[in-house]
């Protein structure tokens, strides 16, 4: 039986690390991890602790001397993850399902906030390898532990990438929100602008109608004036006619006033009377 424990501090918040942990696979850095499937997820209503179980299928990348013993192409791992959001503790327990009769692989990963820096996360990775196969047990255990160490190093790099993915996505969401806000602002501005336009057009139209009204009024006034003018002209004409008639009547007599009879001669009534 062999044990090993690796410690590491991630300079990231526990919340970010715990989300990124779910998103580590698939990754091109571990082509041997073919799939990770959730088999159950339960929340304890009392404690608020989430328990998930997962099946991990790996490509059997093993040394040639191990192949005859293990035989299979794919190997399976079973993982139980518990997350306590109150204490900010995430624990992942993984063990092998394949060839478990000849080899036991157990790994426990724990993520907790760093007590010396709340913005960092402490990571503890424990491995236990047990083999009882006569003759190759030691070799097998050593091999698996070596594999555990290489994969642990890879795992840290993968975690950093997953963190970047999570952060990048958060930024993208922020950008999308920004964009959406900008679009809304832009649309509002455009609407305001079009309202401005409508008001201006309305103003212009009002001015137009006003001008039209003014013109109509002017025309009417001019008409009235023109009518007045023609009336004046008529009055003048009448005056003229009247004075010329008077001149005609007085010039014959050369200043001699009419006698009554004579006067009546010129008036219609007089004419009638004299007849």
């Amino acid at each position: 039986m062999l044990f090993d424990t690796i410690y590491h501090t991630y300079k990231h918040l526990w919340t970010d690390i715990s989300l990124a942990s779910w998103r580590k696979y698939p990754t091109p850095d571990r082509p041997d991890v073919l799939s990770v499937d959730l088999l159950s997820k339960e929340i304890d209503p009392e404690t608020g602790v989430l328990t998930c179980t997962r099946l991990i299928i790996c490509k059997g990348s093993m040394p040639t001397w191990l192949k005859p013993i293990v035989g299979s192409n794919e190997c399976f791992f079973y993982e139980e993850t518990t997350v306590d959001p109150k204490t900010q503790t995430m624990v992942l327990k993984t063990k092998n399902l394949s060839f478990s009769n000849i080899l036991g692989l157990e790994e426990v990963c724990t993520y907790t906030p760093d007590p010396s820096n709340a913005e960092w996360t402490q990571f503890k990775q424990e491995a236990k390898v047990t083999s009882s196969v006569f003759g190759v047990a030691r070799k097998l255990e050593a091999f698996c532990l070596e594999r555990f160490k290489t994969n642990a190093t890879k795992g840290r790099a993968i975690m950093e990438q997953a963190i970047q993915k999570v952060k990048h996505e958060a930024e993208e969401i922020e950008q999308t929100i920004d964009k959406a806000i900008n679009t809304v602002v832009h649309e509002a501005e455009e609407q305001l602008h079009s309202i401005d336009k409508i008001i201006t057009t309305a103003k212009l139209e009002a001015e137009d109608t006003f001008a039209e009204l003014e013109a109509k009024l002017d025309k009417a006034l001019n008409n009235v004036k023109a009518r007045d003018a023609s009336m004046e002209e008529r009055i003048t004409n009448f005056d003229k006619a009247f004075s010329s008639l008077r001149a005609e009547l007085t010039s014959d007599r050369l200043g001699i006033p009419f006698t009554r009879t004579e006067f009546t001669k010129y008036t219609p009534n007089g004419i009638n009377k004299s007849l």
Binding site: S18, P45, G48, V83
Partner: peptide, 14 residues
């Protein structure tokens, strides 16, 4: 799940 995990669950919503 990821959305629920970070926006709901980690904030105490069960």
């Amino acid at each position: 799940f990821y959305k629920w995990y970070s926006n709901s669950f980690l904030k105490g919503n069960t």
